[in-house]
Amino acid sequence: MSERPAEYFEQFKGYKFPVSKYRIKGKKLSAFAAAIGDKNPKYYVPDPEDPNEKADYSGIVAHPAYAACYTIPKLLEALPDIKGSDGEPMLRNIGKLLHAAQEYDFSGCDPLTPATKKVYSEAEFTKFWIKSNILWGESKVVTTNEDKTKTFCKTTITVGIRKGGY
């Protein structure tokens, strides 16, 4: 099966992904910070020495890198379901998919704390191009609270689909 030209993928420009919901839990925020080696008390709460005691996560904020958790997985999960006007899937082989680039913009954003409970991410494809036999697709994601009064992160995710996948 031959690769489709970049023009074919223009139809997906503006495609809006289903809004994804992500639950925010203090314990997870803290574990994530520890997993990337950041034990700054702004992001991390150590486990209490007494196993009967409960840790208090209310004072921490999400590590900026935590945006990876509430943006990427749902977007990648949704890719195989996207179909063109001819009924063909946009992504023909998930094994050819690359997570190529990531950009977080926190300007004007609010800090994400455990009190937020849930965040909502809206994403859409903004650009497609072919370079070095790879189809590149850029999507913009905006993560807010439910009533959109707070924005937590504006993310740009670029995926690549290698030859054989588009």
Binding site: I36, G37, N40, P64, A65, A68, Q102, E103, Y104, F106
Partner: peptide, 24 residues
């Protein structure tokens, strides 16, 4: 990529700054 984020957070904290953008 998270290691980079941690590094930029550290630089920001030590310089009384706010980390506003990271791309790679």
């Amino acid at each position: 990529f998270g290691y980079i984020s941690r590094m930029m957070g550290d630089i920001a904290s030590k310089n009384n700054a706010k980390f506003i953008n990271l791309g790679g």
